[in-house]
């Protein structure tokens, strides 16, 4: 095997003359390593405080000093959440700030896209457990479904509107993404705003639906259904739609951050990974909703 030219180590295809050519930032591409970061540890510290706050609120830590007082638990929970969110933003900020010193933006973008796809695969499996639970119970228990009462009707026009709203938001999100690729920044901004509004509208519809259902006594512990299969159905209904709603909310935060960065002029026509990730995530949430809608409302 010939020994020249020797390829540089993977991920950083710099000049192959070893150790002498520095890039414009003064780094040697052949020995460049990612800079250190305290943020992952700080985020973990915030995450560690939160469950102990919850346990303390439950009053289960007598004799643990201040942790024995539920009020301290509230403080701990809120502090932990604040540290978690704040440090997560610090982490994102460090990533954005370090963008110029990465050596192979194309490879980095591709890796990030792999990341999002794999992450969504994991998410899909979590929803898969919800669907698995639903269809198994549906198959073995003929009573598994919503109660049919005189004043209670499951489904109806509201959820159809909600579905329509969410599906439209996926289209506007895609238009925004295409506009971004053509560097039509104003159109992209407008369409992201529309997407966010539609998403909020969807959450509003579902929130109203939840409120209506709970008012009419459709929840797992309500006396009229607590001892029947309707209770398990209610549990999976609220868990499935709630878990999905959480994802919509996270997607909205992502879209909002994309909008803010667009306003700050962060994105280029060829490099706007955060926008791509947010739009993929949004489409994923959309697809899951369609599956969930069919499962809960049509089959159930």
């Amino acid at each position: 095997m010939s020994t020249a030219p020797i390829p540089a180590a993977a991920g950083h295809p710099g000049p192959s003359a070893p150790g002498h050519l520095l890039d414009e930032h003064g780094n040697d591409p052949n020995t460049h390593i990612p800079p250190p970061s305290l943020w992952p540890l700080l985020v973990t510290v915030g995450l560690t405080m939160m469950p102990f706050g919850v346990v303390s609120i439950l009053g289960a830590l007598p004799g643990w000093g201040p942790l024995g007082y539920p009020l301290f638990g509230v403080v701990l929970l809120l502090t932990g959440a604040a540290i978690f969110v704040g440090c997560l933003m610090g982490w994102c900020h460090q990533i954005i700030r370090e963008k110029p010193i990465s050596h192979n933006p194309a490879a980095q973008q591709r890796d990030l896209q792999y990341f999002v796809l794999l992450f969504l695969t994991g998410e899909l499996m979590a929803f898969g457990a919800v669907f698995g639970y639903f269809y198994y119970r549906h198959a073995v228990d003929p009573n598994f479904g919503p109660p049919h009462g005189a004043d209670f009707h499951f489904g109806g026009p509201l959820v159809a509107y909600a579905t329509f709203v969410l599906l439209s938001s996926s289209i506007t999100c895609e238009i925004a993404h295409h506009a971004l690729q053509k560097h039509q920044v104003n159109l992209a901004k407008f369409m992201f705003v529309v997407t966010i509004l539609l998403g909020v509208g969807f959450l509003g519809c579902m929130g109203f639906e939840w409120g209506e259902f709970i008012r009419r006594g459709f929840y797992p512990l309500h006396p009229s259904i607590a001892d029947s299969s309707h209770s398990a159905f209610a549990a999976i209904f609220y868990t499935g739609t709630g878990f999905h709603g959480l994802h919509v909310a996270i997607g909205l935060v992502m879209l909002f951050m994309v909008l803010a960065r667009l306003q700050a002029g962060h994105f280029a026509a060829h490099r706007h990974f955060a926008a791509v990730a947010a739009s993929w995530y949004w489409h994923f949430v959309d697809i899951v909703w369609v599956l969930l809608f069919i499962t809960v409302y049509v089959v159930g």
Binding site: Y133, R137, D141, P220, L221, S229, S231, A232, A235, T239
Partner: peptide, 12 residues
């Protein structure tokens, strides 16, 4: 208060 695994409430 859910009943995913409570047999008497339709769980499994």
């Amino acid at each position: 208060g859910t009943s995913f695994t409570v047999a008497s409430s339709g769980g499994d």
